[in-house]
Design a protein around this nucleic acid. Structure first.
Length: 300
DNA sequence: AACTCGTGGTT
DNA sequence: TAACCAAGAGT
């Protein structure tokens, strides 16, 4: 019996090369210069489905205005929603404030550090829980986001569709913070979805997919039929954006509808009412009927 | 488990 | 220009 498997995994070399590459190629991102759990959490939630360049614009202003869980918990929903302007997925801002209140009321103002505790908080799923555990609390946990999933799928084709199991298998003992950041960095800057820069890749020699951009599997997904084929969330966003500017509008539904949808007609009334109910249910707005008109405002 | 939730840049 | 894409989460 041999002392080691006949086919030695290439992971040691893979780790070395990727970590070395990261050392000299890491972007200078503000959330990489702190281990403050609050700031790490804010950055990770902002980064959900949102480009780094967009987050960079808003991150500083947000944490300067809301400096801690305590401050964020004390703010009104409307304030937080306004500060979220331009970020998209406005539900995240509401959940972030709810999270801050839970941390204040039930965790003595300190963010839990364990993954299983983090997962119970609103707006925190598997990715964010692991990211916070690793980046803020230094824990040795694997990480898989869309970048890492793409990198691993190209490096290890045929190991199944679950990036988490691969990430777990190749996770190094040490330098886990740098490792997880490096995998994301590689996916974001080199191993990109559209035109991977294989000539600049530190592990091109170990990559079965090098220079063979996997034919984008025809994304079968998402109908998202709204009005005229435009998803409802677009109109939701327009309503929120309107309310960010003018706090309250006491007008007819017709006026509100015309404010967010061209050619808004009486036939769209029911649709708009449903839309507003959804926004209210999500804690983004409050609406009151006042006779023949409606008063809308951002939630308090 | 498919669907929904913004926003704006890139192709 | 229409489609795609971006540090996912909730239902």
């Amino acid at each position: 019996m041999s002392l080691r498997p006949t086919v030695r995994p290439a992971t040691p070399q893979l780790r070395r090369r990727i970590l070395a590459w990261y050392q000299t190629n890491a972007r200078n991102l503000p959330w990489r210069k702190t281990k403050n759990p609050y700031r790490i959490l804010i950055s990770e939630v902002m980064l959900q489905q949102t480009q780094v360049t967009r987050v960079l614009e808003k991150y500083h202003r947000f944490i300067r205005r809301f400096t801690s869980f305590e401050v964020l918990a004390r703010a009104s929903a409307a304030e937080v929603i306004r500060a979220w302007s331009g970020m998209g997925y406005n539900n995240r801002s509401v959940r972030l404030r709810e999270l801050a209140r839970i941390v204040r009321d039930r965790f003595n103002g300190r963010l839990p550090s364990r993954v299983d505790e983090l997962l119970l908080l609103p707006g925190i799923g598997r990715y964010t829980a692991h990211a916070v555990a690793c980046f803020a609390f230094g824990q040795r946990v694997p990480l898989a986001d869309t970048n890492i999933a793409r990198v691993l799928a190209r490096l290890f084709p045929g190991e199944g569709p679950d990036p988490w199991s691969i990430a777990d298998r190749i996770l190094p003992r040490r330098h886990v913070y740098e490792w997880n950041q490096a995998l994301m960095e590689l996916g974001a800057t080199i191993c990109t979805a559209a035109r991977p820069k294989c000539t600049s890749c530190p592990v091109v020699r170990m990559c079965p997919s090098a220079f063979s951009i996997a034919a984008r599997k025809a994304t079968l997904h998402k109908k998202e039929r709204g009005r005229n084929g435009i998803p409802n969330r677009i109109y939701r966003g327009r309503i929120i954006e309107l309310l960010r500017k003018s706090n309250s509008r006491g007008r007819g539904l017709m006026d509100i509808g015309r404010g967010v949808k061209p050619n808004f007609s009486a036939a769209d009334h029911k649709w708009l009412v449903t839309l507003l109910a959804g926004l209210e249910r999500d804690g983004l707005i409050q609406s009151r009927n006042r006779g023949n008109s409606v008063v809308l405002r951002l939630a308090s």
